[in-house]
């Protein structure tokens, strides 16, 4: 592979890692800060990606497709605005987030009042149901063949061979915005309540916090971010099919990223995404069984168990202080949380 090939390959890896980092941040809100066990990330991943893809592709040619009918054609719809930047892209990202948020609201409303692990089982069910709907409702999403010709963000600005760099910048910008927003939210009093709930629900409730409501808000916010991640994925790969969202690459690996990076730490969540995705793509060049995808699947599971057993905090561990106010008082009195 020549130099330009390597650069292009690396760009692709970084784009994907950046997208995974968005998911990892969403999962960090669920698990890292609130202790919500979501094992159906693939569902929100698919829902976000499909929402954006369905909204932005043009309606299919009825001569070529029998059952497949739907296409939102958002770029044409919003072309009258034309501020010089593809506005539809951001509308699609937000729409993907909102759809995921609404689904999370429904599922959270039913399960978050009950035992902790009901949520896990329900998210698993949502992931499977979402997959089945997109697989079976051909009019909506073209069944197992999936959606292609998903439009490029600012596709006409640069030439095709340099497009990856532009999208890389876009992904990193969205990631930065999401990161700063999550960081801000977590450092707010609202974020402190989440951590209080995670540590001790009864105490949080006794302090007058509506535990159910806070959990629900956290679950919706995390799902919203995952929806954005899904949309970023759709416009990067520009092809989505039910098979794109298998539990390994759409749920398990994101768990490994968060656990390795450091759950309860946003920097850790981003770092974990880059580290694990780097290892995942890097190991395919190794000789022998190390590059066997099945062995790497085993290692993902092994990694999760090993981190929980040996280093529950991951690489970075949880930030001990979340309050800016507490940080400012640091000189006066060292305070724990």
């Amino acid at each position: 592979m020549d130099i330009s090939g390597i650069i292009s390959y690396t760009t692709g890896v970084v784009i994907m890692a950046g997208i995974y980092a968005v998911f990892s941040l969403g999962l960090n809100i669920h698990w890292g800060y609130t202790g919500l066990f979501n094992i159906g990330i693939a569902g929100f991943f698919a829902l976000g990606a499909y929402t954006s893809a369905i909204l932005t592709t043009s309606a299919p040619d009825p001569d070529l497709f029998e059952d497949f009918k739907f296409g939102g054609d958002l770029p044409a719809l919003l072309s009258f605005l034309d501020p010089g930047i593809d506005l539809w892209f951001f509308v699609a990202l937000l729409a993907a987030g909102v759809v995921c948020g609404v689904v999370a609201l429904g599922i959270g409303f039913i399960t978050l009042r009950l035992r902790d692990d009901y949520l896990a089982i329900a998210t698993l069910g949502i992931a499977e149901s979402v997959r089945l709907v997109f697989l079976n409702e051909k009019w909506l999403a073209n069944g197992s063949k999936g959606l292609y010709r998903i439009p490029k963000f600012m596709g006409d600005v640069v030439s095709a061979e340099n497009y990856e760099f532009l999208y890389l910048v876009a992904v990193l910008l969205v990631l930065a915005v999401v990161y700063l927003a999550v960081q801000q939210v977590i450092k707010s009093p609202w974020g402190r309540v989440l951590k209080a709930i995670r540590e001790d629900e009864t105490t949080a409730a006794a302090s007058g916090k509506n535990v159910f409501s806070f959990k629900l808000q956290s679950f919706v916010l995390g799902a919203f971010i995952m929806g954005i991640g899904g949309a970023l994925y759709a416009h990067s790969v520009r092809f989505v099919a039910p098979i794109s969202f298998d539990p390994l690459l759409a749920t398990f690996i994101i768990w490994a990223m968060l656990m390795v990076g450091g759950s309860g730490n946003n920097k850790g969540a981003v770092l974990g995404a880059f580290v694990v995705w780097g290892i995942w793509t890097g190991t395919q060049f190794l000789p022998g069984f190390l590059s066997d995808p099945n062995f790497r699947l085993f290692m993902i599971g092994f990694l999760i168990v090993a981190v929980i057993l040996l280093r529950p905090g991951g690489i970075l561990g949880e930030e001990r202080r979340v309050s800016r106010a507490a940080q400012e008082r640091e000189g006066a009195a060292p305070s724990e949380l």
Binding site: D117, L297, G301, F302, I304
Partner: peptide
Amino acid sequence: RLRGRGVSTVVLAMTSLGVAIALRGAVQV
């Protein structure tokens, strides 16, 4: 070991997810 550490049941469920992935990986290997 985790019981001895007194972790919450959700962490145990999380661990079993890791075990599940590893078992399937082993089957596929």
